[in-house]
Structures are given as C-alpha cells and as structure tokens.
Design a protein around this nucleic acid. Structure first.
Lengths: 353, 353
DNA sequence: GAAGAGTATTGAATCGGTTCAAAAAAATCC
DNA sequence: GGATTTTTTTGAACCGATTCAATACTCTTC
C-alpha cells in the first residue's frame, strides 16, 4: 500500500534488517539464513517490491550487459536492409549465447546521432559504417567505450575495424562468370553518391566512389584483365542500392544494342531486384542472363532461381566483434576476412549463338 | 594521464569548482559564466573526461529513454521474420521521431528469458506474444514497468494489449476470393503446434489451435458459409510457419485429385513460400491459382506477382504501443484494430472450365 | 555607499542499489 | 565453560551523476 515506489531500503526497514542483508536476500540468497530470508521475502511481497531495480546494480557494476549497434541510417535500416539484417542475425546469435542484450541506435540527422550515441546504455558499440562513418566513429570514440567498425571505408588505421577482402571477393565473382564463358558482362554498382547513378565512366570510380564498391570494382577489373578484357569494355551502371535505381539501371543496360549475357551485381539486394526486372521482362535466369550477387544474404538462398553470390562470413564477423566488445579487447591491427564464392542457380554458361 | 576512470567529481576538483557547477557546464552550459565554463572544459579535456556518463544521469532521472521489445524467440527472430520485422520497422519509425532507443530482448529458454527481461534497461516493454506469451507477460508484470502485448492469444482481460480483428480480416480475405468466383479453396494455416501440421480436421481447430490462426480460420469459415460452403468442404493444411512445412503442405494440396483454384494463406510469409512452390511447379499465379496472404508485410508488395493480402495497420499499432509505454498510459480496455484488404496481382477470377 | 535585484556558485541530498571490512552471533572444539 | 572457528549481519562507503535551496558574488540605482 506504499505510496510511490518501494525501494530496497524500505523493505529492509520494514523487515528489521540492514540494507546489506536485504540486498543479499535477492542477489546472493545462499549467504543469508533461511529464516531471515523468508521474512524479508514476505515483507517484500507485502510491500509489493518487485526485486532489485536493475539501475542500481548497473550503476554499481559499471556495466550494462548490452552492446549497441549503430548506423547512420534510420532505425528501420536494421530491419529492412538484407545486409544489415544478416549481420544483426549473426550478432543476435552470438549475443543470445552470452546473455547480452542488443540496443540498436540510429540517426538520420547529426544532432540525433550525437544524442543517441551518447545516451545509449551499452558496454560498447559495433558500428555499421556504410556511409558517413567518420562522424559516427568520432562520436563513438568520444564516448570512450570499446567499439569496432564494420564495412569501414575510411583509411584511418587507428580505427579498430573488421573488414572483408572486397577486392579478391570481386575477383572471384568475375572469374566465375568468365570461366563459364561470358565475355559480355555488365556491372551494377552500389553507393550513396547521387552523382554516381546511371552510366559511370571507369575513371570516376577511384575519385568518387566509396571504398566498398570501389574495392569490389577493382576486384572485377582485375579478373577481367586476366581474361584480356579492358575495363572500358565493361559498362557500369550506378545504383543507389535501392529498387527504383536498380530497375532504371537494368532498363538502360538492356535497351542497348548489345545487352550483356551476365551481370556482376555489387550486392545481393541489387541482384535480387535485377532478377525481378528480368523475370518481368520474360528474360530467363540463367539461360538468357547470368547474374551473381555479393554478400550472401539469406534471401539469396531462397530466391527463384537461387542466387549465386560471394558470401561474407557473417557469423565470424559477428563472433569477433561481439567478443572484442565484451572483453574490451578490440584488435589493434585491422583484420580482413575472406569471402566465399557460393555457386547456385543464377549463373550458367551463355547461350551458344 | 589519470589512472583508471575520470569522474565528474575529479574534473570539478581539478578545476576548483563545485561538482554542481561542473555538472552544469555539461548539462546546462548557459547557466554558468563563460570564463568558468571554459576553464572547466579545458580541465576536462586535459584529464580526458569524455562528458557525463549516462549511467549517472539515468540513475538520477529514473528513466532510460528506451523501450524493450521482447519475444519468446531467438534474437534472430526480430531480423528474420517478416511480421516481426514489419512491426520493428514501424516501431523504429516512431522511436526515431521521439529519440527513443530500442532494445531487443529475446529468450529461447526459460531462465534466459527471466534474466533478459529483468536486466533490460528500458522504460517499458512491447511484447510480441506469438506463442508462450503467458510466461512472458508474467515475467514482465513482475518487473513493474509499463508493457503492452501485441498479437496476444491469451484471454486474460487484465493484460493490456493491442490486437487486430483477425476474424473480420479472415472474412474479408475469403470474401475476396469468393467474389472473384472461386469455389474450390484451400487453407494454409500457421502455428507452432507440432500436431497441427499436414491435414487438419475442422473440429480440431477450436481445441488445439492458437488464438490468432483460430480467429483467422473462423473469419474464413464465416465468409465461406455466407456462400453456402460448409467448412468440411475446405481442406486445411497446417504449417509450422516455415518454408519446409509450407512446401510439404502445397505438395499435399496439389497432389489431390481436385486441386484448389485458390488459396487462403494465414500469413504473407507462408503465401510467399507457396508462390515459390507454384512457380517451381510451373503453375501461374493468378491464372492457374489465386492466392491471398495475411499481414501486409513489405515483401508482399514487391513479390512477383505482387501478393494480395489483408494488411495490418503496423504504423498505427506501433504508434499506439510506443506512446502508451512512453507516457506510461497503457490502455485499460483492449483495442482491436481493423485490417485492410489490399488487392494486388496474385488473385483473379478462376479459369473458365 | 547601502539597499535591492540579478546572476553564479556551492554543498548536500538523492537516485537504488552493491560491496566489504568489521562486529555479532552461533557453532565447534578442547 | 572458555577459546576458537565459522556463519550471519551490520553499517557505511561507493557507483556517477543531477538538483535545488541557500549562499555569494555583481551590478544597478538612489
């Protein structure tokens, strides 16, 4: 019948024991005599005390048992974007196993970002740095919590990060198509740069493109060069990594006089959209057009046809990041993990002409 | 160069001001004289103080500015399941607008669940009660924070909940098919009950099925009855709401002598799997088979063909739940929101015979 | 130059617990 | 029965901030 809130101190007083004992009743029951324990518990029940408030404990302990995953994207990004979701799923698995909570923190605008990063109750951050990473890193560093960046394009070697080897991944993708016999290949690039939508000239890649797509591009080029195909011979269509710009890119690619027989897509997301466009156009995959994605998101495994792709080791990335945060042992040197070519049903030899 | 951690008190002492003033420098800078402010700020920088620790503030303020979303599912559920994701996306949008954080809390096993619920730093919970909801509700109630249950099947009227009108939603779906002229309809049900996979006799629905699918079923039956079709005439195939059991169900449905011309699927997820099966079998949607889903997840809008469905008002559900938690004003009476029939390309009149 | 009006700053209480050295009580031993 | 050991309990410090009444400064103004 207590007005307002019942605190541990209230219970202790009502039960006639010290606050220390009352605390023990809840957090280390084995240490207090059974008779006393019962009495305290009864009083607690009568008073409507719901057990120790986590806030007190955490303040004392200094850790919250949760990690934050942050991105410079709206909150919906975590539940929408296939790449982010794959990562979150993997992170979720690791956290589940260790009883760690996950807080998602996002921010569209600058001030929100700062506020969200600063007010998140977490023991450390995993940063999804697809874009605008610098600011995110800066803010996080200021908070003085362990953090680790994923998919970072920033050169700064002092930022702890786990990356993937986009160049050799790209090369593996291109090599796969080339080995199948394709010589007329087009590239679907991704990015957040408004200027890089539609036809993209190769010489604009290095100065203008973000690090991830740039590296993948160089991987493609590398393999193509091995087969004697110069980069100028391979059309690049830039997309904003969304549905509409992908559909436009496909439209452009296939309205040319000599449409490609195979497509190198820089993400599964874009590849999947492209497959939809092809299906609507009545073009069969892989008979008419082969397509290979990038990332290895789960959707790629259940699409029709199942998408060939270059898979990221999500589980490994998640395991390493979470462990690093939890043990406050972020790696000194950067690590670049290998990708794996996963051949499924969306690629085949080109039709004989 | 300070060993260990720098606290506000350290900064205050080093700058020769009271802790109160030091606090003001950071949280209400306008109230302290510029000269002093600068001095404190400088000292803070020298000492490597990264601004007030959120834990202290929160302890004082008593609120965390975050809400928890909990489910009796592995953490990956939130990023995998289309329904959960739709909801999370909507919740994310509302939270973004108000600067509220989101913590996802999950639990496969009993003890983890208790621990996770009790140690989540949140101001309240949104419960995704698809199954095993009782225990989740009980635990949450114990924590004495505001909470609201979604998709609750439990009858207990004292549990604050926001629901949807599954019966009239189901009726709308069935009516749509009936109006198009279908008379040979099959039902794809969903659930977590192992026994309810494969053929399900109508009389088992009420005693064995969970509330959500049961209500949807009654909605279907209601509309069917209006057209003079008895429930016994409509085959029910139970699925476990996953890919493999759905494919098996489709296999069973279409290996019968008289396969259906239309399918009532109890979720978009199942409907989408079913469409894949049909596509692989060379059956055209909607020409050969019409199919209507349930939920209105985003994937349904971009599938090929786009899926007709009965859409939940996710945005409205999210808005109400988050507001209720944040304002600690959970509704007394239960609310049931209306669903909306969204007609797209997966339903059409049956082929003339 | 004193009274009055603002503005800045201080100090102590507070949030809700945990922890640990020391004291008290109970059990064991000789 | 007293000394010793073991088990329980106590009380106060502590975690890292915010808050607010009270006090101490600065200006005005007459």
């Amino acid at each position: 019948m207590a007005k307002g809130h019942v605190r541990l101190a209230d219970v202790a007083k009502a039960a006639g024991v010290s606050q220390g004992t009352a605390s023990n009743v809840f957090s280390r029951p084995e240490v207090v005599r059974e008779e006393v324990r019962e009495r305290v518990l009864n009083v607690a029940r009568e008073l409507g005390y719901g057990g120790p408030d986590i806030k007190g404990r955490l303040l004392r302990a200094g850790r919250v048992n949760a990690i934050g995953v942050a991105a410079v994207e709206p909150l919906t990004y975590f539940f929408d974007d296939p790449w982010a979701r794959s990562l979150m799923t993997a992170i979720g698995e690791v956290c589940d196993a260790s009883g760690t909570g996950i807080a998602v923190v996002s921010a569209m605008n600058e001030e929100r970002l700062a506020w969200n990063i600063n007010s998140a109750l977490v023991d450390g951050f995993i940063l999804l740095c697809v874009e605008g990473g610098e600011r995110l890193v800066q803010l996080t560093r200021q908070r003085q919590l362990p953090f680790i960046a994923l998919a970072l394009g920033i050169e700064d070697e002092t930022i702890p990060a786990i990356g993937i080897d986009n160049i050799s991944g790209g090369a593996a993708a291109a090599r796969h198509l080339l080995e199948l016999g394709h010589r007329n290949i087009a590239i679907l690039s991704i990015g957040d740069v408004d200027g890089l939508v539609g036809v993209v000239a190769p010489e604009r890649v290095d100065p203008e493109m973000e690090a991830t797509p740039r590296d993948r591009m160089h991987g493609y080029w590398q393999a193509l060069a091995d087969y004697g195909i110069p980069r100028e011979a391979v059309p690049i269509q830039g997309t904003l990594h969304d549905r509409s710009s992908t559909l436009m890119a496909m439209e452009a690619l296939f309205s040319s006089a000599n449409p490609p027989t195979a497509i190198l897509a820089m993400s599964d997301k874009v590849a999947l959209f492209a497959m939809q466009w092809l299906a609507e156009r009545g073009l069969k995959v892989p008979e008419d057009v082969s397509i290979i994605g990038f990332d290895g998101v789960p959707e790629a495994a259940i699409s029709l046809p199942r998408l060939t792709t270059v898979a990221q080791p999500f589980a490994e990335i998640a395991r390493r990041s979470v462990t690093a945060i939890l043990e406050n042992a972020v790696p000194e040197n950067r690590e670049a993990l290998d990708l794996e070519l996963v051949v499924r049903d969306s690629t085949a030899a080109p039709r004989l002409r």
